[in-house]
Design a binder for these strands. Structure first.
Length: 588
RNA sequence: GCCGACUUAGCUCAGCUGGCAGAGCAACUGACUUGUAAUCAGUAGGUCAUCGGUUCGAUUCCGAUAGUCGGCUCCA
């Protein structure tokens, strides 16, 4: 129907738009019962949704693609047809085109109503288009999927066909190859190959088991978080995994979140829930003693384990799970302290992202919507506007680039979401930083201000390192499994050349282990080439070769997974080299 | 949860239209004693996801359940 805003003059965009029309033409030629509904251009391609209850199969895609190629060959001209709104309304009503009618009615009054026609196929459409179908050079239909009409799950389920089009066969081939390459760094594939995590049907969907390599990564990340948070004045707390129902009424979570909570377990007439978030517990810790304005800000941190009942179809490897450990903390502060605290949190995000070398991310200010007040969002319009302004101003003051998106806030306040993209292009919120102006009051939290009055603190929820699950899922893809030294589950592997070197190999392993490194030794009766190959495939940063040649001088052969053979070093020199490399891990 | 597809050995995958299930790698055993990406030989391993149905006979056809995948919805 329309090109993406701002791309109307892009020739590839126009061509994809035309390809969507050709797709709809091909489908209606082959399946006269299928009703075209809407078909926009998207990043890297296009789709078209059809109302066709029997559904399309993969085989149908081949047929449809063949028909599209036929239409392209016919070299039909794209023609613009202008029509009055009334005529269009009448036409859709007469033809029973209810979907098109609905689209037409959503076009603002005063805008031109235009159609585009090629051959026999006519579609309500804003344009622009290619001039002839032959200008659509290389097409490929990629997949079929169900999709709700207008993206609303209460509406009918339509059949969506995804496809793409490029200016040349080579461009298309390149794109398809790129997709294949992306699949190779998919964390689900690499996570299995690198023995980081696994799922077991008997444990349950969305409940990951961390293998020793994953466990090592979690330890490294927690060490990073704890060090950073200690320097930033946080205090570590610990809270239980289950909690009485009543607290979730106090917090207001039950009415909003019950659907995504595991159902309550009842014992001696009392209901307990698995905790879906840590905030209420931290609020209780804040409330555990009298607070003065002199104590604020109070920063409570915990790698809390939470459980959320995500719908089965929503699970996705490590990126979307049902049990998760969150890099959580809550900062209780005064209104005056808000900006500094909020910015400090943003700076912490940025320093982490710098450490990981994450370039492609987006800070997104998620605000409320008027319509959601009292339903999705607490019904305090003035406070929403005020806190959203506070966040906006803080970001501007800190010169932090962001985009703003309406109707994405938490129920208790606006938030900054940090958006990232997975290897296969799916978008996720990696980290989040939220302002809570509602829940502290519900918990009766207060501190004595300088006038000896009770005042409700603001609360900042923050999780810059996301959850272990989502962060590690993302990092696997980001590094394609080749983790930096500080994060690599096995940092070095000692490879013995022959059996008579085992003792020395074990001694080298011990020296490095004693120095704090994660080191394994491969003492098998195998050729060095095999041991190297296996260590390379596991993306171990350093391979340490212990053989007869270096025995006399007590050296080890050092091989780096990327730089190859680095020659021989004495162990103390090797340790110095590793220490230098680990300094990257020191973030200010 | 919804639409569609898939599920064969520890892993990666063959197995045309129903007729006793295959490979490579891994594992185990033995030989080889190894210097920068795969030494050789042998052995073992599967109620073909689960449960029902059709059939003389089902890994193959049909149905249900579970899990996974591509999307939609939702989300850290």
């Amino acid at each position: 129907m329309v090109c993406r805003p701002g791309h109307e003059n892009d020739p590839v965009e126009k061509m994809r738009h035309s390809a969507a029309h050709i797709l709809a033409d091909a489908v209606t030629r082959l399946y006269p019962d299928a009703k075209p509904t809407i078909g926009p251009v998207i990043e890297n391609g296009f789709y078209y949704d059809f109302d066709y209850p029997p559904g399309f199969s993969e085989d149908d895609l081949e047929k449809i693609e063949a028909e599209m190629k036929k239409i392209i060959k016919e070299n039909q001209k794209f023609e613009r047809i202008d029509m009055s709104r009334d005529d269009a309304l009448k036409m859709f009503k007469e033809n029973g085109e209810t979907y098109k009618l609905e689209i037409l009615q959503s076009i603002p009054e005063g805008e031109d109503i235009t159609f585009y026609k090629h051959g026999e196929f006519v579609d309500l459409c804003k344009g622009p288009h290619a001039n002839y179908t032959k200008q659509v050079k290389a097409i490929k239909l990629l997949s079929v999927a169900g999709a709700y009409w207008r993206g609303d799950e209460n509406n009918a389920m339509l059949q969506r066909i995804y496809g793409t089009a490029f200016a040349s066969k080579e461009d298309l081939a390149n794109y398809l190859e790129q997709l294949e390459e992306a699949k190779k760094r998919d964390h689900r594939k690499l996570g299995k190959e690198l023995e980081i995590f696994t799922f077991d049907d008997e444990v349950g969907p969305g409940l990951p088991l961390w293998l020793p390599n994953g466990g090592a990564m979690i330890d490294a990340l927690e060490e990073l978080a704890k060090k950073t948070e200690r320097k930033a004045g946080y205090h570590r707390v610990r809270t239980p995994h289950i909690t009485k129902e009543t607290m979730y009424y106090t917090s207001g979570h039950l009415p909003y979140y019950e659907e995504s909570m595991y159902p309550a377990m009842e014992l001696e007439g009392i209901k307990y829930y698995l905790k879906p978030m840590n905030c209420p517990h931290h609020h209780k810790i804040f409330a555990a003693k009298a607070r003065s304005y002199r104590d604020l800000p109070v920063r409570l941190a915990e790698y809390g384990t939470c459980y959320r009942y995500e719908k089965s179809g929503e699970l996705f490897g490590l990126m979307r799970v049902r049990s998760m450990q969150m890099n959580d903390a809550h900062i209780y502060c005064t209104l005056d302290q808000f900006q500094d605290e909020f910015l400090a949190v943003c700076r912490m995000y940025q320093s982490y992202f710098k450490l990981f070398g994450i370039q492609k991310y987006q800070m997104r200010l998620s605000t409320h919507s008027k319509e959601g007040l009292g339903k999705k969002y607490v019904d305090q319009p003035e406070l929403w506007i005020k806190t959203e302004d506070m966040v906006r101003n803080a970001l501007k003051a800190g010169d932090i680039p962001f985009v703003e998106v309406e109707n994405e806030a938490a129920f208790y306040g606006p938030k900054i979401d940090v958006q990232i993209w997975s290897a296969i292009g799916r978008e996720f919120t990696l980290a989040t930083n939220q302002v809570d102006f509602a829940v502290p009051e519900r918990f009766g939290l207060s501190f004595k201000n300088s006038k000896n009055e009770d005042e409700v603190p603001l609360c900042i929820h923050r999780a810059p390192l996301s959850t272990h699950e989502r962060l590690i899922g993302f990092l696997i893809e980001h590094y394609a499994g080749a983790f930096p030294l500080w994060l690599a589950p096995v940092q070095a592997k000692v490879l013995s050349v022959s059996e008579d070197q085992h003792e020395r190999a074990l001694a080298v392993q011990k020296q490095l282990t004693d120095a704090g490194y994660r080191v394994e030794a491969d003492l098998r009766n195998e050729k060095l080439g095999l041991k190297i190959r296996e260590a390379q495939l596991m993306k171990v940063p350093y391979m340490l070769i212990v053989g007869k040649k270096d025995a006399e001088a007590n050296l080890v052969g050092v091989r780096h997974r990327k730089d190859g053979d680095l020659g021989s070093l004495a162990v103390p020199d090797l340790l110095q080299k590793l220490t230098d490399e680990m300094k990257e891990f020191d973030i200010e």
